[in-house]
Design a protein around this nucleic acid. Sequence first.
DNA 1: CGCCTTTCGCACCATATGGTTACTTTGGTA
DNA 2: TACCAAAGTAACCATATGGTGCGAAAGGCG
Lengths: 217, 217
Amino acid sequence: MSAQSPDTQSPRPRIRDAEATKSRILEAAKKEFAKNGLEGARVDAIALEANANKRMIYHYFESKERLFQTVLENAYFDIRESEKKLDLDSLDPREALERLVRFTWNYYIQNPEFISLVNSENLAQARHLKSSETVKIVSRRFVGLVDTILKRGVAQGLFRKGVDPVQLNITIAAVSYYYFTNQYTGSIIFERELMSEAAQAERIRFNIETILRIVSL
Amino acid sequence: MSAQSPDTQSPRPRIRDAEATKSRILEAAKKEFAKNGLEGARVDAIALEANANKRMIYHYFESKERLFQTVLENAYFDIRESEKKLDLDSLDPREALERLVRFTWNYYIQNPEFISLVNSENLAQARHLKSSETVKIVSRRFVGLVDTILKRGVAQGLFRKGVDPVQLNITIAAVSYYYFTNQYTGSIIFERELMSEAAQAERIRFNIETILRIVSL
DNA sequence: CGCCTTTCGCACCATATGGTTACTTTGGTA
DNA sequence: TACCAAAGTAACCATATGGTGCGAAAGGCG
């Protein structure tokens, strides 16, 4: 990089961009909260990582707690947005379920912060989510997704009747979520490298089979 | 309460009981770590709850980190001890699986700290468990449990062949564990009281059915 | 009984942490 | 172009926190 000016100590002109700064803070906060939990996360570390001044965090987000809340709400919003793009209604019900199971897995892989954030929120007894209307709204659509698939499967004589869509939903999340969130203790207890490519492929297969067996006649 | 003596400020004679003190500290630590996580837990709070002096914690356990490690190892030891008492080998394979699923559920209900401790340890990337030989040993027996049931089921023509006992083990834990650890966010997202007696009974039923469907022919 | 190891308690420390005060700089606009 | 609200910075603060130094008392043992 060449010298921009012959200044003795060019105090690089501060760029004013509120949106960019906010977004850098949010990204850094997501990382830090995910890595160290709500209590373990350090506001100074977030400021540093975001390349922002700590004061800005309090300026835009009021407190560490509220920053966490914003990060969490965004995380829920993002996963539900991704689900919207799945277009499951055009698929055979069995394939739709399989795609949903695969999607869940891949989302956790690509967004490892999500699980950790949710864990932190549960440790906090969901006190940040209680007041969040957005999360409730986006979640409703999500539950409807599986319900529709189930109904279509039953109508086509592919699935058995009486499967509770909420229980199925929970189970679809559970079989992937548990695997990831307990990957460290799991690898020790089962004396098996759970995160290798081979192990992952095997687990996805098993999960798809599990979910299809739940709904099968 | 009557005055025990006419002393001006009877400094109640200190009772010396190392084992009792250690055990009170461990119990208090389990509670505090489970409630607030490894980072959120406060050593002062543990001392207070244990009715012990903070100095004793460092005397017996060296550091907060090592105290956590001890609590965690004990927790794993306890759950494996309980499983030993299940006597699954005398049961019909299907009933053995059902009993194991029920046991897992009940254990989490009766020992809510367990899940939270394991979550904390995974946030810490299992760094406290890595050096623990005891955990590895007691875990081995645990995996063998399901393997035996599966083999017996296959031999009796009740279960299909080729089910990986580790995958099944993980799934048995997953369907209960996820439900509990995400009970707070879950109740919001699914807009349903997940911890009512009725909801719990329904979930146990669903879990048993899920596990039996995985192994069925 | 007197000794001495172990258990226990108080006061204290260095540091880290969430949060704030007070100030400077930027850049859109009247 | 001068103004001023908003964006940004640095130094600072009160407090909480994990961890210790050191002395006192308990009680088993010779």
